[in-house]
């Protein structure tokens, strides 16, 4: 009941937006090749997802590229991040370049990646992996570096190995930063997949939006954008949920009161 009530205000906002939208796109409003009415977009969604079902293979393609690239990029980022954070040598030789690449917009590489990896799924996966790699890499490094010095000395003073200290002290200490990097990454991953499809593809939601642009079929474009929005929201909600479950200790003071 409470939850249902909490949903009410945003639903009212939605109704208001739809109302204004409908008013502007009525018979006397904007032409539908500029802004289609909500009902036209609804019809495009309905046929794409329900009656014709033609959107599903495209969604599946985009989501596959997103998830596979995300998983590869994220695992790579944590592994390389751990290496850089733990090894002086690696840090000195590699870290400056990581910082430089981090500052570069990776989508600019999309055409090159398409040339190298073809126009199918592989190039999208590579682009996605590359885009979500760097923020997570930087977060992993700062997270591991930021592990409490006394905590590390404590574990060392009990003669625990360097590996033990890494796995049981540094990595958990870095977990909040890593989870934050994963949250940034899931949003970037979807962007990467769609950009890849814009540049060149014969499948995917990005491709559908791109070809609808050519036909001036704005209702279909809107439908595609809404599908991507839903996928993005679902993804980041899932990661946020994982974040809270995995890093359950985050944000809690370690000692709420001073007396014994």
């Amino acid at each position: 009941m409470k939850r249902a009530l909490a949903l009410l205000p945003p639903l009212l906002t939605l109704a208001l937006i739809l109302g204004i939208w409908a008013a502007f796109t009525g018979p006397t409003g904007l032409p539908s090749y500029l802004l289609p009415s909500p009902s036209l977009v609804g019809a495009a969604l309905w046929s794409g997802l329900v009656t014709e079902g033609t959107d599903w293979p495209h969604l599946a393609f985009t989501l596959t590229a997103t998830l596979v690239g995300y998983v590869i990029g994220s695992i790579g980022a944590v592994l390389v991040g751990a290496l850089v954070a733990e090894s002086r040598l690696f840090e000195r030789f590699v870290y400056p370049y990581i910082i430089a690449i981090q500052a570069m917009p990776k989508v600019a590489l999309a055409p090159l990646i398409l040339v190298w990896f073809g126009f199918g799924l592989a190039s999208k996966v590579v682009l996605v992996a590359l885009i979500c790699f760097f923020p997570l890499l930087v977060n992993t490094i700062t997270g591991i570096r930021g592990a409490d010095r006394e905590m590390i000395e404590m574990a060392r003073s009990f003669s625990r190995s360097g590996w033990f200290v890494f796995v049981h002290v540094k990595l958990p200490a870095a977990a909040p930063a890593i989870m934050a990097g994963l949250q940034i990454g899931i949003v970037l991953a979807l962007i990467g997949a769609v950009v890849g499809e814009f540049v060149s593809s014969d499948r995917g939601v990005g491709y559908v939006i791109g070809s609808a642009t050519v036909n001036m079929n704005v209702a279909v474009m809107f439908a595609g954008v809404l599908e991507l929005a839903a996928a993005g929201m679902a993804g980041s909600t899932l990661v946020r949920w994982l974040h809270r479950r995995i890093v359950f200790w985050e944000g809690r003071p370690s000692h709420p009161s001073a007396e014994s």
Binding site: W249, R252, P253, S254, H255, P256, S257, A258, E259, S260
Partner: peptide
């Protein structure tokens, strides 16, 4: 968990 302990309990 440590967040549920006071400073004295933690020590």
């Amino acid at each position: 968990y440590p967040s549920q302990l006071s400073g004295g309990m933690a020590q």
